[in-house]
Design a protein around this nucleic acid. Sequence first.
DNA 1: TTAAAGAGTACCGATTTAGTCCTATTGGGA
DNA 2: TCCCAATAGGACTAAATCGGTACTCTTTAA
Lengths: 150, 150
Amino acid sequence: MIRLSKLADYAVVMLSYMAAREGEVYTTARLAERTAVPEPTAAKVLKLLARSALLESQRGSNGGYGLARPAADITVAEIIVAVDGPIALTACVEGSSEHCGVEQLCSMRGNWNRVNRAIRDALEDVTLADMAVPFAAAPVLERRPEQGLV
Amino acid sequence: MIRLSKLADYAVVMLSYMAAREGEVYTTARLAERTAVPEPTAAKVLKLLARSALLESQRGSNGGYGLARPAADITVAEIIVAVDGPIALTACVEGSSEHCGVEQLCSMRGNWNRVNRAIRDALEDVTLADMAVPFAAAPVLERRPEQGLV
DNA sequence: TTAAAGAGTACCGATTTAGTCCTATTGGGA
DNA sequence: TCCCAATAGGACTAAATCGGTACTCTTTAA
């Protein structure tokens, strides 16, 4: 019902992998191999994360990427924003000043902000540390595999 | 950061319009005109909503669509699911039985369920009646237009 | 019986997204 | 000081998705 981009998924997977041993530096090649993400794509994602200051990069030989902050301080919301960018929910909310012709509708659409906020809050409540927890150890949420919705 | 499809947006807009006078029957043409949604697309959306039992349809002349339930009983989550379908957040969660090669990652990805649930809960908390409230009358959430994120 | 309405389906076209490649820059070590 | 390993950045291509359109069938009231 709501789609998360693959790149964002990759980002979370790779960051979770890095969260296992904070402070360590990982090269793109190593991360790509361990997370089964195609290397060029992994490189792209890592660059985005570094640009958003979620990762610290070290160039040159023996270089690589490391978490810029403790995993518990990095939220899923941040990761998604870093990769997918701040995409608005509807055109009317996109900060564009143009009205959509039907004034009344424009104002109605403002109510999306309430939905936006609810979702953002939800995503900000989940940290990278939460995601890195092996599934078995995570609090049991009911397992309905066919569900998979958001 | 998370994109809602245009069709889902249209759906909410049209349903909100209909919520203004429950019990009334609206033709596709009229709804399309009043909500500034292209008519063929409006027809498509309305069919989807009818199929999901959010709308009741009346065929034949003098026919049209009407809300199947009170606006307060229809959640935004239902509307989005009706239009966009239950799209999974990641491939691993899609109910597919195939593993992604890296076992440990698969289990990690299970933690997405927590995120999924949080978002679904958020969307289920907002009803069509909430969305139909003119913006001015809605409880004031801070107005940061540049935000527009989800 | 006819016209007005929705139901269903199949199909394009355009946009977006994922993925690839190339070049520049940086830094460590021999 | 030179070379190699590694990231930075951007341009480009391919593919998947989504928005939109068209056509035919069914229903129903006048």
